[in-house]
Computed example of a mutant assay.
Amino acid sequence: MDPSVHPPAVSKLHYQVEGWFGDALVTTFPCFLVTEEAKRGLLDIGISGATLAPAEVTKSENFLELQPDVELPPFVWLKVDGRAGHDDFGVNQKLNLVISERAFDVIDELGLPSASIQPFDVGNK
């Protein structure tokens, strides 16, 4: 990670899971992950504003203690490079992830139980 720029530039993603409650989308500044199942759905609709790349995902000691029976699905890195409010995926000036309705529908169908989702305000691009 290159912290000399903001948001930090990430060249290789290793995400250590502290807890997981079934979300198909995992957000952690400045990176995002989706399950393989979500990846397939997003590719089926031909998303714009993001590419999908491999990510190393491991369980933390905390995860192993608190959720020992939870199996993680395979995850991939959702590398967002689109324009908020224009592409299916983008990041606004406040560094919040912005998702089009059609991409949201794909991910929501697979589970967004703990995500905090708010409508996109065009005035806050």
Results as ranks from 00 to 15, higher is better:
Phe21Ile: 03
Ile107Gly: 03
Ala38Trp: 15
Leu95Trp: 15
Phe104Lys: 11
Thr58Val: 10
Gly90Asp: 09
Gln118Gly: 02
Gln93His: 11
Pro7Thr: 02
Arg102Met: 04
Ala115Lys: 12
Asn96Ser: 08
Val17Ile: 15
Pro119Ser: 11
Gly41Met: 01
Ala50Thr: 03
Glu37Gln: 15
Glu18Val: 04
Gly19Tyr: 15
Gly85Thr: 04
Leu97Ile: 06
Pro8Leu: 14
Asp108Phe: 13
Trp20Leu: 08
His86Gln: 13
Val57Trp: 10
Glu37Leu: 11
Glu65Ser: 07
Lys59Pro: 00
Lys79Arg: 15
Asp69Ser: 12
Leu78Tyr: 02
Leu112Ala: 01
Pro3Ser: 12
Glu65Lys: 15
Leu72Val: 04
Gly22Ile: 05
Gly82Ala: 12
Val57Leu: 09
Val26Asp: 06
Phe89Glu: 12
Ala9Cys: 03
Asp81Gln: 13
Leu64His: 02
Ala53Phe: 04
Leu97Asn: 01
Thr58Phe: 07
Leu52Ile: 15
Val17Phe: 13
Val106Pro: 07
Gly90Phe: 00
Leu64Glu: 15
Lys79Glu: 14
Asp69Thr: 10
Glu71Cys: 04
Leu25Asp: 01
Thr51Val: 04
Glu65Leu: 14
Ser60Pro: 09
Pro30Tyr: 13
Gly41Ile: 01
Thr27Arg: 12
Thr35Glu: 04
His14Gly: 01
Ser114Glu: 15
Ile47Arg: 12
Gln67Pro: 06
Gly111Ser: 07
Leu66Tyr: 08
Glu56Pro: 00
Glu109Cys: 13
Tyr15Leu: 04
Leu42Arg: 06
Val26Phe: 01
Met1Val: 07
His14Leu: 14
Glu61Asp: 14
Val80Phe: 09
Trp20Ser: 06
Lys125Thr: 08
Arg83Pro: 01
Asp23Thr: 05
Ala55Lys: 00
Asp81Trp: 10
Leu33Thr: 04
Glu61Tyr: 09
Gly111His: 14
Leu25Lys: 06
Trp77Leu: 11
Asp87Cys: 09
Ser11His: 14
Leu52Trp: 08
Pro8Gln: 07
Ser4Glu: 04
Arg102Ser: 06
Glu65Arg: 14
Gly22Asp: 08
Cys31Tyr: 01
Ile45Lys: 09
Pro73Phe: 09
Glu71Pro: 00
Gly90Arg: 07
Tyr15Ser: 05
Pro74His: 11
Val76Thr: 07
Glu109Ile: 02
Gly49Met: 00
Glu65His: 14
Gly82Arg: 09
Pro113Thr: 07
Val91Asn: 01
Tyr15Pro: 01
Gly85Trp: 15
Asn62Gly: 07
Gly123Pro: 01
Val98Ile: 13
Pro119Cys: 08
Gly82Pro: 05
Ala9Thr: 03
Leu66Ser: 12
Gly49Tyr: 00
His86Phe: 12
Phe29Thr: 03
Asp81Lys: 13
Thr27Leu: 14
Met1Arg: 11
Leu52Asn: 03
Ser60Cys: 04
Phe63Gly: 06
Glu71His: 07
Val57Gly: 09
Lys12His: 11
Leu78Thr: 04
Ile99Asp: 05
Thr27Cys: 11
Pro68Lys: 10
Val70Ile: 12
